[in-house]
Amino acid sequence: MRALRCLLGALAGAAFAAGLASPALAAKDAPTPPSQNWSFGGVFGTFDRASAQRGLLVYKQVCASCHGLKRVAYRNLAAIGLSDDEIRALAAEIVVVDGPNDDGEMYERPGRPSDRFRSPFPNEKAARAANNGAYPVDLSLITKARMGGADYLYALLTGYRDEPPPGVQPMEGMHWNEYFPGHWIAMARPLYDDVVEYPDGTKATTEQMAWDVTTFLAWASQPYLEQQRQIGVRAILFLLVLAGLTYAVKRRVWADVKH
């Protein structure tokens, strides 16, 4: 048993040492975003479908005018509970340039479920030209690509202040945000109460919309998350049972060997 503790201790110690690196890297000039109780948090968490669907609406009506979501296909939306018909209708709203056809011509067609979300700008230069030189990033991976993940995104969306704190000089064309590293962000505050009307009657406060769109984008960043955890729970339960049996066999094999 002592030897076993030694083994576990070594592994835990190594994990601790390895993990030291991560918190140590937190940005120092912005406060750590408060930890939120997400539906998809924890070991058994799943994406709140209703919230994610509302978030899709917020993305479409607010974010999509500047931010792309190019890695998500319309067909993927089935995972947050959209029906086939809804997905078809949603995809058909966009016009896709396809081709060349047999005459060598490019042609336009309505979007299909297999198409991916269309980015608002053809390239980064065009995006910067339309946004005062700032580049609105693609949101497909946003909660994975930021320290703090969903907590950070929610804090950012609700962290706008009308005025910088006293003593800080205002910056032309920039906006004060509590949680953005360096605080001055090019993106204007995107969410105001009731900027979106929810069909399910949920009151569209800034916090509610920020919550919903964060849930949606967290799903978009890792649509495989639920499957990942399901398999994980089963794999680890299996290994625990197998390890228990193996330990029993080991005890028997070693029973009369002094060591």
């Binding site: 083994l7 576990l8 592994l11 994990a15 390895a18 993990g19 690196a21 991560s22 890297l25 070991v43 994975k144 690509a145 930021r146 320290m147 993940g149 990942q228 955890r229 398999i231 994980g232 729970v233 794999a235 680890i236 290994l239 625990l240 197998l242 390890a243 193996t246 330990y247 066999v249 080991k250 094999v253 070693w254």
Partner: peptide, 28 residues
């Protein structure tokens, strides 16, 4: 048998990262 047992414990440790904290050791 002894190494098999140790290996299984190690795999539990490994899979905890893979399935529940897959990006903990990486950089955003």
């Amino acid at each position: 048998i002894k190494d098999s047992f140790a290996l299984l414990l190690f795999f539990i440790f490994y899979f905890t990262f893979v399935f529940f904290f897959p990006n903990y050791l990486g950089h955003a």
